[in-house]
Design a protein around this nucleic acid. Structure first.
Lengths: 153, 153
DNA sequence: CATGAAATTTAGCGCAG
DNA sequence: CTGCGCTAAATTTCATG
C-alpha cells in the first residue's frame, strides 16, 4: 500500500469488477497507453496485491440456491482439537467460508446447499460426524441483498 | 443445470479457480481441442452460468485486514422502511455483503475495515446514521480459516 | 475439429521529467 | 532512473469450412 499510487488503485478497481477487460481498453479509460498499464498489472500481481483471477458462477443455476450460516461451539479448546476441526472443515466443499470468531460461538461457517433437505443431510451426515463439535446454531438466509467480491478501495 | 454436461462442469471448476487459464491449456487438460472448449465457455457465459470474471485482491495489503459480521435488528418492519434500509446499506462500500436472515436479527452484514478504530468510526458515523436500526451486535473475526469464491460442483 | 485472419499480449528500446 | 510511448514478435481469440 506504500508503493501503490492512484493509477494502481484505478486499475485494481476495474479488475475487481471485470478482470476480462483488455489492457488496451483499460489504458484508454486511464488516458494511458498499454505499456504502463500492462507493467503495472504485472507488478500488482507479482507484489501480491492481486491474488487470483476467477469466474463467479450463478448459485441458483448450479442448484446451490440456499445459503446458511452455521455457528459452531467446540466441546474442548485444546490446540490440537481445534486444528483437527479446521482440517475437517476445509475438506467439506459445501462450506464456502469458515471464520474463527469472538463471542458466544467459536466458528462461523457459510454453507451453500440446494435446499432444506440437502442442508439436513449435510448437518446429519457430514457436519455432525466431525469430532468435538459442542453445539451449533443455524441462521438461514432468506435473501441476499448485496454480495460483492470487490474491496472498497 | 439441465443442459450442462460433465465437460461443462470441468470447465467451470477450472475457471472458478483460475479464469486466466487460456483456452489452449484448458483444452489440453480436458483432452479436447480449443474450438469445443471455446464454444462451451461462450455458451456458459451466454446462458448465465458464468456471471462475471473478477480479480481477487489481498485484503491485508489493501489495509482492510479486519472483518466484522454485524447483526442488525430493525425498529419497524413496514415494507418501505425495510427497502429504505436496504438502499442505505448498498451505498456503504465497507459493507461487502448483506443478507436478510431468519432468527433473532433481521440482517447480517459483513464489513471490511482497516482496524478497530476504523470500525468504531464506521459504526458511529455511518451505520448509526441509517434510520430505523433498532440494535446491532458485532461479531469480530479473529481468523479466516477458509474463504472460497468457488462453488462445490 | 482444423485452419487462418484479426486482435491482444508481451517484450525490447528510446525518450522525457 | 523511473515511468511512458512506440514498435514488433509471439500468442490467443474467434469465425469459417
Amino acid at each position: 500500500m506504500e508503493n501503490i499510487d492512484n493509477i494502481d488503485l484505478q486499475i485494481l478497481k476495474h479488475l475487481q469488477e471485470n478482470s476480462n477487460i483488455n489492457t488496451k481498453e483499460l489504458a484508454s479509460k486511464l488516458f494511458l497507453t498499454v505499456t504502463p498499464v500492462y507493467e503495472r498489472i504485472k507488478r500488482l500481481e507479482r507484489d501480491g496485491y492481486i491474488m487470483k483471477y476467477v469466474a463467479l458462477l450463478n448459485k441458483k443455476k448450479m442448484n446451490l440456491g440456499m445459503t446458511v450460516f452455521c455457528n459452531v461451539r467446540l466441546k474442548e479448546h485444546a490446540k490440537n482439537v481445534g486444528s483437527n476441526f479446521v482440517k475437517d472443515i476445509v475438506a467439506l466443499p459445501e462450506i464456502i467460508e469458515c471464520y474463527n470468531i469472538a463471542g458466544d460461538y467459536d466458528f462461523m461457517l457459510k454453507i451453500l446447499v440446494e435446499d432444506m433437505s440437502s442442508y439436513q443431510d449435510f448437518v446429519m451426515n457430514k457436519l455432525s460426524t466431525i469430532e468435538n463439535i459442542g453445539n451449533t446454531q443455524s441462521v438461514f438466509v432468506m435473501g441476499e441483498i448485496k454480495h460483492s467480491t470487490a474491496l472498497a478501495i
